[in-house]
Protein backbone atom coordinates (compact mmCIF):
# COMPACT_ATOMS: atom_id res chain seq x y z
CA UNK A 1 0.00 0.00 0.00
CA UNK A 2 1.30 3.46 -0.86
CA UNK A 3 2.24 5.69 2.00
CA UNK A 4 -0.18 8.28 0.60
CA UNK A 5 -3.22 6.02 1.01
CA UNK A 6 -6.06 7.70 2.84
CA UNK A 7 -4.34 11.06 3.32
CA UNK A 8 -4.62 14.20 1.27
CA UNK A 9 -2.32 14.08 -1.74
CA UNK A 10 -3.66 16.93 -3.87
CA UNK A 11 -5.32 20.09 -2.69
CA UNK A 12 -6.57 22.87 -4.99
CA UNK A 13 -7.71 26.11 -3.45
CA UNK A 14 -9.42 28.67 -5.64
CA UNK A 15 -7.32 27.72 -8.65
CA UNK A 16 -7.77 29.45 -11.99
CA UNK A 17 -5.99 28.93 -15.29
CA UNK A 18 -5.89 31.08 -18.37
CA UNK A 19 -3.68 30.78 -21.45
CA UNK A 20 -2.21 34.14 -22.36
CA UNK A 21 -4.77 36.88 -22.10
CA UNK A 22 -7.77 34.70 -22.99
CA UNK A 23 -10.57 34.10 -20.55
CA UNK A 24 -10.00 31.53 -17.83
CA UNK A 25 -10.33 27.94 -18.97
CA UNK A 26 -10.49 26.81 -15.35
CA UNK A 27 -12.04 28.92 -12.62
CA UNK A 28 -12.32 28.74 -8.87
CA UNK A 29 -11.31 25.11 -8.53
CA UNK A 30 -11.22 24.03 -4.92
CA UNK A 31 -11.02 20.36 -4.09
CA UNK A 32 -8.95 17.71 -2.39
CA UNK A 33 -7.89 14.33 -3.73
CA UNK A 34 -7.16 11.60 -1.24
CA UNK A 35 -4.61 8.85 -1.49
CA UNK A 36 -5.80 5.47 -2.67
CA UNK A 37 -9.01 6.75 -4.24
CA UNK A 38 -10.23 6.29 -7.79
CA UNK A 39 -11.51 9.45 -9.44
CA UNK A 40 -13.25 9.95 -12.75
CA UNK A 41 -13.09 13.42 -14.24
CA UNK A 42 -15.96 13.98 -16.61
CA UNK A 43 -17.29 16.81 -18.66
CA UNK A 44 -18.07 17.73 -22.21
CA UNK A 45 -15.37 18.41 -24.74
CA UNK A 46 -13.79 21.78 -23.99
CA UNK A 47 -14.89 21.70 -20.37
CA UNK A 48 -11.26 21.90 -19.25
CA UNK A 49 -10.52 18.27 -18.38
CA UNK A 50 -7.15 18.21 -20.10
CA UNK A 51 -6.21 21.58 -18.60
CA UNK A 52 -7.03 20.32 -15.13
CA UNK A 53 -5.00 17.18 -15.74
CA UNK A 54 -2.08 19.34 -16.89
CA UNK A 55 -2.19 21.08 -13.54
CA UNK A 56 -2.28 17.68 -11.84
CA UNK A 57 0.75 16.32 -13.65
CA UNK A 58 2.67 19.58 -13.32
CA UNK A 59 2.80 20.45 -17.00
CA UNK A 60 1.24 23.80 -16.26
CA UNK A 61 1.23 26.30 -13.42
CA UNK A 62 -2.10 27.91 -12.59
CA UNK A 63 -2.73 31.60 -13.14
CA UNK A 64 -4.00 31.93 -9.60
CA UNK A 65 -4.79 29.92 -6.54
CA UNK A 66 -2.93 27.43 -4.40
CA UNK A 67 -2.02 23.85 -5.28
CA UNK A 68 -0.54 21.51 -2.73
CA UNK A 69 0.77 18.17 -3.97
CA UNK A 70 2.02 15.43 -1.72
CA UNK A 71 2.23 17.97 1.09
CA UNK A 72 4.29 20.48 -0.90
CA UNK A 73 3.29 23.85 -2.30
CA UNK A 74 3.42 23.21 -6.05
CA UNK A 75 3.18 26.91 -6.90
CA UNK A 76 6.20 28.20 -5.07
CA UNK A 77 8.41 25.14 -5.23
CA UNK A 78 11.58 25.65 -7.31
CA UNK A 79 11.86 24.02 -10.75
CA UNK A 80 14.60 21.79 -9.43
CA UNK A 81 12.09 20.13 -7.09
CA UNK A 82 9.59 19.29 -9.83
CA UNK A 83 11.26 16.12 -11.23
CA UNK A 84 11.06 14.35 -7.86
CA UNK A 85 7.38 15.16 -7.65
CA UNK A 86 6.73 14.21 -11.27
CA UNK A 87 8.26 10.77 -10.74
CA UNK A 88 5.44 10.10 -8.29
CA UNK A 89 2.87 10.76 -11.00
CA UNK A 90 2.18 8.47 -13.94
CA UNK A 91 0.58 10.12 -16.94
CA UNK A 92 -1.36 8.70 -19.87
CA UNK A 93 -1.61 11.51 -22.39
CA UNK A 94 -4.59 11.85 -24.66
CA UNK A 95 -2.29 11.91 -27.69
CA UNK A 96 -0.04 9.22 -26.14
CA UNK A 97 3.11 11.32 -26.54
CA UNK A 98 5.36 8.37 -27.20
CA UNK A 99 8.96 9.08 -28.15
CA UNK A 100 8.94 8.30 -31.84
CA UNK A 101 12.54 7.17 -32.22
CA UNK A 102 12.32 4.68 -29.35
CA UNK A 103 10.88 1.16 -29.48
CA UNK A 104 7.82 0.18 -27.45
CA UNK A 105 10.18 -1.42 -24.92
CA UNK A 106 12.33 1.71 -24.60
CA UNK A 107 9.29 3.96 -24.33
CA UNK A 108 7.95 1.89 -21.45
CA UNK A 109 11.40 1.75 -19.86
CA UNK A 110 11.82 5.53 -20.06
CA UNK A 111 10.44 6.44 -16.61
CA UNK A 112 12.65 3.83 -14.98
CA UNK A 113 15.71 5.01 -16.86
CA UNK A 114 14.97 8.62 -16.00
CA UNK A 115 14.67 7.53 -12.37
CA UNK A 116 18.11 5.97 -12.59
CA UNK A 117 17.30 2.26 -12.48
CA UNK A 118 19.97 -0.09 -13.77
CA UNK A 119 19.27 -1.93 -17.03
CA UNK A 120 19.13 -5.30 -15.27
CA UNK A 121 16.32 -3.96 -13.06
CA UNK A 122 14.39 -2.65 -16.04
CA UNK A 123 14.20 -5.56 -18.48
CA UNK A 124 11.99 -7.85 -16.37
CA UNK A 125 9.27 -5.40 -15.31
CA UNK A 126 9.07 -3.81 -18.76
CA UNK A 127 8.70 -7.18 -20.46
CA UNK A 128 6.03 -8.18 -17.93
CA UNK A 129 3.94 -5.05 -18.42
CA UNK A 130 4.24 -5.29 -22.21
CA UNK A 131 3.01 -8.83 -22.02
CA UNK A 132 0.18 -7.73 -19.78
CA UNK A 133 -1.02 -5.13 -22.26
CA UNK A 134 -0.66 -7.67 -25.07
CA UNK A 135 2.34 -6.14 -26.78
CA UNK A 136 5.06 -8.64 -25.97
CA UNK A 137 5.55 -9.34 -29.66
CA UNK A 138 5.75 -5.62 -30.48
CA UNK A 139 8.47 -4.70 -28.01
CA UNK A 140 10.92 -3.66 -30.72
CA UNK A 141 8.33 -1.79 -32.79
CA UNK A 142 8.49 1.97 -33.11
CA UNK A 143 5.31 3.93 -32.36
CA UNK A 144 4.84 4.80 -36.03
CA UNK A 145 4.36 1.12 -36.84
CA UNK A 146 1.80 0.57 -34.06
CA UNK A 147 -1.95 1.11 -34.32
CA UNK A 148 -3.66 3.79 -32.24
CA UNK A 149 -4.83 1.24 -29.72
CA UNK A 150 -1.38 -0.30 -29.45
CA UNK A 151 0.19 3.09 -28.94
CA UNK A 152 -2.32 3.81 -26.21
CA UNK A 153 -1.42 0.57 -24.46
CA UNK A 154 2.28 1.45 -24.65
CA UNK A 155 1.43 4.85 -23.17
CA UNK A 156 -0.47 3.21 -20.35
CA UNK A 157 2.32 0.72 -19.71
CA UNK A 158 4.75 3.63 -19.55
CA UNK A 159 2.54 5.47 -17.07
CA UNK A 160 2.21 2.58 -14.66
CA UNK A 161 5.63 0.94 -14.91
CA UNK A 162 7.07 3.11 -12.15
CA UNK A 163 4.22 2.24 -9.73
CA UNK A 164 3.38 5.92 -9.25
CA UNK A 165 1.58 7.33 -6.21
CA UNK A 166 -0.90 8.94 -8.55
CA UNK A 167 -1.93 7.91 -12.05
CA UNK A 168 -3.44 10.58 -14.29
CA UNK A 169 -5.01 9.35 -17.51
CA UNK A 170 -6.58 11.47 -20.20
CA UNK A 171 -9.18 9.44 -22.13
CA UNK A 172 -7.11 6.27 -21.71
CA UNK A 173 -9.66 4.00 -23.34
CA UNK A 174 -10.51 6.25 -26.23
CA UNK A 175 -8.68 4.24 -28.86
CA UNK A 176 -9.07 0.66 -27.64
CA UNK A 177 -11.80 -1.89 -28.15
CA UNK A 178 -14.30 -2.50 -25.33
CA UNK A 179 -12.55 -5.64 -24.13
CA UNK A 180 -9.22 -3.90 -23.89
CA UNK A 181 -10.91 -0.91 -22.24
CA UNK A 182 -12.22 -3.15 -19.49
CA UNK A 183 -8.86 -4.85 -19.18
CA UNK A 184 -7.13 -1.49 -18.81
CA UNK A 185 -9.63 -0.36 -16.23
CA UNK A 186 -8.93 -3.56 -14.31
CA UNK A 187 -5.23 -2.63 -14.42
CA UNK A 188 -6.04 0.80 -13.05
CA UNK A 189 -8.17 -0.77 -10.33
CA UNK A 190 -5.38 -3.16 -9.48
CA UNK A 191 -2.98 -0.28 -9.11
CA UNK A 192 -5.61 1.60 -7.13
CA UNK A 193 -6.01 -1.32 -4.74
CA UNK A 194 -2.25 -1.24 -4.22
CA UNK A 195 -2.52 2.36 -3.07
CA UNK A 196 -2.15 4.38 -6.26
CA UNK A 197 -4.56 7.27 -6.56
CA UNK A 198 -6.13 7.15 -10.02
CA UNK A 199 -7.60 10.09 -11.88
CA UNK A 200 -9.16 9.18 -15.22
CA UNK A 201 -10.58 11.84 -17.49
CA UNK A 202 -13.32 10.51 -19.72
CA UNK A 203 -16.54 11.49 -21.32
CA UNK A 204 -17.64 7.86 -21.55
CA UNK A 205 -20.36 7.60 -18.87
CA UNK A 206 -20.48 3.81 -19.25
CA UNK A 207 -16.95 3.63 -17.98
CA UNK A 208 -17.96 5.25 -14.68
CA UNK A 209 -20.27 2.38 -13.81
CA UNK A 210 -17.51 -0.17 -14.31
CA UNK A 211 -15.64 1.06 -11.24
CA UNK A 212 -18.23 1.18 -8.49
CA UNK A 213 -15.89 2.59 -5.85
CA UNK A 214 -14.91 5.56 -7.99
CA UNK A 215 -15.60 9.21 -7.23
CA UNK A 216 -16.79 11.56 -9.90
CA UNK A 217 -15.53 15.07 -10.61
CA UNK A 218 -17.53 16.87 -13.21
CA UNK A 219 -16.20 19.90 -15.06
CA UNK A 220 -18.55 22.29 -16.72
CA UNK A 221 -17.05 25.16 -18.67
CA UNK A 222 -13.98 25.27 -16.47
CA UNK A 223 -15.80 25.02 -13.17
CA UNK A 224 -15.99 22.01 -10.99
CA UNK A 225 -19.48 20.87 -10.33
CA UNK A 226 -19.50 19.77 -6.73
CA UNK A 227 -22.92 20.62 -5.33
CA UNK A 228 -22.64 18.25 -2.40
CA UNK A 229 -19.14 19.31 -1.46
CA UNK A 230 -17.95 15.76 -1.84
CA UNK A 231 -14.62 16.86 -3.20
CA UNK A 232 -14.01 19.40 -0.47
CA UNK A 233 -15.03 17.21 2.39
CA UNK A 234 -14.80 13.45 2.89
CA UNK A 235 -15.62 12.24 -0.58
CA UNK A 236 -18.52 10.00 -1.34
CA UNK A 237 -19.66 8.46 -4.55
CA UNK A 238 -21.52 10.59 -7.03
CA UNK A 239 -22.62 9.16 -10.30
CA UNK A 240 -24.69 10.87 -12.92
CA UNK A 241 -28.25 10.97 -11.80
CA UNK A 242 -27.44 10.24 -8.18
CA UNK A 243 -26.51 13.61 -6.85
CA UNK A 244 -24.50 15.81 -9.15
Amino acid sequence: MSRTAGGEIIHFDNVGLRYGTDREVLSDLSFTLFGGKFYFLTGASGAGKTSLLKLLYLAQRPSRGIIRMFGKDAITMPRSALPTLRRRIGVVFQDFRLVQHLSAFDNVALPLRVAGFAEREIAGPVSDILEWVGLADKRESRPASLSGGEQQRVAIARAVIGRPDMLVADEPTGNVDPDMAVKLLRLFELLNRQGTTVVVATHDVHLLRKVPESLIMRLDRGRLSDPTGALRYPPRRMVPGEGA
Binding site: S80, R97, V99, L110, V114, R158
Partner: peptide, 16 residues
Protein backbone atom coordinates in the same frame (compact mmCIF):
# COMPACT_ATOMS: atom_id res chain seq x y z
CA UNK B 1 11.23 19.78 -27.99
CA UNK B 2 8.45 17.16 -27.75
CA UNK B 3 10.81 14.49 -26.51
CA UNK B 4 12.32 16.86 -23.98
CA UNK B 5 8.88 17.80 -22.69
CA UNK B 6 7.97 14.15 -22.30
CA UNK B 7 11.20 13.41 -20.48
CA UNK B 8 10.53 16.39 -18.22
CA UNK B 9 7.01 15.19 -17.48
CA UNK B 10 8.32 11.72 -16.67
CA UNK B 11 10.57 13.28 -14.05
CA UNK B 12 13.72 13.87 -16.08
CA UNK B 13 15.96 16.62 -14.76
CA UNK B 14 17.55 19.47 -16.70
CA UNK B 15 20.93 17.96 -15.95
CA UNK B 16 19.94 14.60 -17.45
Amino acid sequence: RDTIEIVHLLGGTDTQ
